[in-house]
C-alpha cells in the first residue's frame, strides 16, 4: 500500500496543471500580477491594485525591475487613490527612493514633492523639485517636475479666513513660476512636455493680462505640436481672439480665425470664428481706407 500510495498524487498534479496553476513560471506570475495591479490602479480598483503590488513586493524571487514597479505602484496608488493615504504613500516613495536606480530616485522625488505641496509643506515640495531639476536636468522627470514646481508657485490656496475662501499667489510667487517654466524651455526647448509648458505660460500671462507674451507662448505651443485636438483648437481660437481684442493685430487675428474656420468646422465656435473673420477683414479694410484717405489728404 505504502509503495503505490504516492501514485495517487499523479492525477491531482495532472488536474492542477490542466487548470493552469503551474502553467507559468513564478517570474511570469509576478509580471502578470504587476499588469493586473496597474490595470486595477488605472480603473480605480485601488484595494485590488495594492494587493497585487504587495504580493510582488513580498515575493522573494522578484527582480529589481519588478520590485521597482511594485513600489512605484504602491506609492502612486496610496498617493492618488480617491481618499489618499499620504503616510503610506510617503513610506513607499521612501523605499522607492532607496532602490539602486536613478529612475526610482527621481520618481520618488516627484511623488514626495507633490505630497509635500498637497499637505501644505509647499517650501519642502518646491525644494525637492528644484533639486531634481538641478541634479537630473536631462531626465523626463525633470520636465514633469518643472510643471509641478510652476504649479506650486501659481496655485491659489484655500483659506477660509479670507472673504471668498481663497488666497491668491503673490506677484513674486507668480514671477518665480514663470521663470521656472521659461528657464526649462530655454535649456530644453523641445522637451516632450514643451507644448504643456508653453500653454501653462500662456495661461498665466492671460491671467496677468500680459497678452503679447501670452500669444507668443500660444504660438510656440502650436509650433511644438499640441497632441489633443480640443486644446489645439482652443489655442488657435485664443490667438485669434486676443490678437483682435487686445493686441489689435488684425493680420494675426485674420490668419488664425481663417485657420480655425478651415481646421475646426465641427466645433461650436466655428460660426463665431467665421463671423469674426468677416469682422476683422472689415476692420482691416477700414484701416486701409482710413490710411489712404489720410495719405491722400
Amino acid at each position: 500500500m505504502k509503495a503505490w500510495a504516492p501514485l495517487l498524487l499523479i492525477p491531482l498534479l495532472g488536474a492542477a496543471l490542466a487548470s493552469g496553476c503551474g502553467g507559468r513560471s513564478e517570474a511570469g506570475s509576478l509580471e502578470a500580477l504587476l499588469t493586473r495591479g496597474w490595470q486595477a490602479y488605472s480603473t480605480g480598483d485601488f484595494d485590488y491594485a495594492v494587493r497585487c503590488f504587495q504580493q510582488v513586493d513580498n515575493a522573494q524571487t522578484a527582480t529589481a525591475e519588478q520590485t521597482y514597479s511594485a513600489l512605484l505602484g504602491l506609492a502612486t496608488t496610496y498617493h492618488l487613490e480617491t481618499n489618499p493615504d499620504f503616510p503610506k504613500a510617503r513610506e513607499y516613495y521612501g523605499r522607492l527612493g532607496a532602490l539602486d536606480s536613478d529612475t526610482a530616485r527621481m520618481q520618488s522625488a516627484v511623488g514626495l514633492a507633490r505630497i509635500d505641496v498637497a499637505a501644505g509643506n509647499a517650501a519642502d515640495g518646491r525644494a525637492r523639485l528644484t533639486a531634481l531639476i538641478r541634479d537630473s536636468p536631462d531626465s523626463m522627470e525633470a520636465d514633469e517636475a518643472t510643471i509641478h514646481l510652476a504649479d506650486a508657485y501659481f496655485a491659489p490656496r484655500t483659506d477660509e479666513s479670507v472673504t471668498g475662501g481663497f488666497r491668491l499667489p503673490t506677484q513674486g510667487s507668480i514671477q518665480r513660476g514663470l521663470e521656472t517654466l521659461e528657464g526649462r524651455l530655454a535649456s530644453h526647448p523641445h522637451n516632450p512636455l514643451s507644448s504643456s509648458m508653453h500653454m501653462m505660460l500662456a495661461n498665466k500671462y492671460i491671467e496677468t493680462k500680459a497678452f503679447d507674451k501670452a500669444v507668443s507662448h500660444l504660438l510656440a505651443a502650436d509650433k511644438e505640436g499640441i497632441a489633443a485636438a480640443r486644446l489645439r483648437s482652443e489655442a488657435i481660437w485664443r490667438v485669434a481672439r486676443i490678437a483682435e481684442e487686445q493686441l489689435k493685430d488684425y493680420d494675426l487675428a485674420e490668419q488664425y480665425y481663417a485657420r480655425y474656420v478651415k481646421e475646426f468646422d465641427r466645433t461650436t465656435l466655428y460660426y463665431r470664428a467665421l463671423k469674426s473673420l468677416e469682422r476683422v477683414r472689415a476692420l482691416k479694410d477700414g484701416r486701409r481706407t482710413s490710411a489712404e484717405e489720410t495719405g491722400g489728404a
Binding site: I147, A202, A227, E234
Partner: peptide, 15 residues
C-alpha cells in the same frame, strides 16, 4: 503628452 496637456489646461482654468 496628451494627459499632461489636459492637466495644465485644467490647472489654468482653475487658477
Amino acid at each position: 503628452k496628451r494627459i499632461m496637456e489636459a492637466y495644465v489646461a485644467q490647472l489654468g482654468a482653475r487658477d
